[in-house]
Nucleic acid binder design. Sequence first.
DNA 1: CGCATAGTTGAATTCCCTCAACTTGAGTGG
DNA 2: CCACTCAAGTTGAGGGAATTCAACTATGCG
Lengths: 233, 233
Amino acid sequence: MSVSASARILPPMLRVAPQDAMGLPFPQIAHHLLTVARDAEIFPEASPATHVYKVLSGTLRTAKLLADGRRQIGAFVFAGEWVGFDGGPRHFYAAEAVTESRLASFSRRDLERLICEDHEVARTIQEVLCGTLAAAHEQIVSLGRKTATERVASFLADVEGRLPESGKGGFMLPMSRGDIADYLGLTVETVSRTLGDLRRRRVIQIEDAHQVRIIDPTLLAALGGDEMRRYSA
Amino acid sequence: MSVSASARILPPMLRVAPQDAMGLPFPQIAHHLLTVARDAEIFPEASPATHVYKVLSGTLRTAKLLADGRRQIGAFVFAGEWVGFDGGPRHFYAAEAVTESRLASFSRRDLERLICEDHEVARTIQEVLCGTLAAAHEQIVSLGRKTATERVASFLADVEGRLPESGKGGFMLPMSRGDIADYLGLTVETVSRTLGDLRRRRVIQIEDAHQVRIIDPTLLAALGGDEMRRYSA
DNA sequence: CGCATAGTTGAATTCCCTCAACTTGAGTGG
DNA sequence: CCACTCAAGTTGAGGGAATTCAACTATGCG
């Protein structure tokens, strides 16, 4: 069963002038910029939730292990997204780097303090939380009630919408088949076979293992088996 | 495939003096008390998220349907818990009454306004959101990586901890086997068989279909296959 | 009492997993 | 530059956990 590689953080921390561009929020708070290597652990499972991070570049995954080594990935976190907001006093998941990534870290304590002064901050945090929650709910439906093909199809559609294009129409899948499998509740083999099926059915095109192009977005969305609308008003 | 019964709300709304005891939060905001019948819909899927509700008594479920009728239940909401905080401008799930329930409803707009005046409110909301998120994450692990037995076992342990005891040591499972199945990503038959196994193995005792008693809590927890701890400090 | 719904149990099927072999690609050192 | 190694990915064959289909029982409600 898949177990992540050894964790190491490249440069432990790099303080940087706070007026850094990059669309950073909370200019009132000092932040740290850090770069993490592929497979490095940003924080371990069940560790005290002292900081939150915004991904500036690269991709992270949140992962949880069962006692016997089974792994569930909770989310992939792409550039522009947040990680570490998962709630309680301790992190539910570990956070690891899928690719080398640059992050901005913020102290939760500073944020809490800021909430009392700036309502805009509270709103921003709430929005991030709601976004995370919506993604979790979507994944629950996927894991609970969708077939392997439906899971892979909606995964591709989701990722395609959150990642920037890379070259002529396609996009880069930064994570391994194992990561995808542990995210979708499947095995590596099933993910591989399903992707092969989609390729053979001309729904997608696979340049190499990490370079994908969606040929038929409509069909892909249909294969994703998405929800019916019960409320139209 | 399981489809919920027709929706109807018993007394549409019942205004009540706001000084009602009941441990109600946000005394600054007018709220409404309502009673909903078994299987009544509190709000439909994808409806505008105008209100949030605290359950005073009874049990709710949040449900989402796929186009072909497959159903996923996102959560069961017991007395003292909240529903409707799921985030965006529209509800992700529908909310329905598992049993006749009494609710207190709060306008989101009022709450938003209150946030700007009282930071304690913002904190309360954030805590509810975080709790919901933690539950969702736990369910993701369950659906993605646990066997049927593990799912049922951890479900029972979870529910047992959130529901009041009913009579000598046991507790009431208010929801149907179909609800449990749609929550755990299984079928009614599998849930029934698994509960039967647990009964035969003397882990639980089943008085009638809705009355359960845990005989061996340690074994039940072990069967739930709960996570290893990677962080001890 | 009779009907409908919920729950249980059995038999057969299926989708996905497990195990295994093979292919591919990236990194290393001769 | 090529041989070697190792990890990642693909593909095939067989097996198993949960589903599907079906029959039956139990429970409530008019």
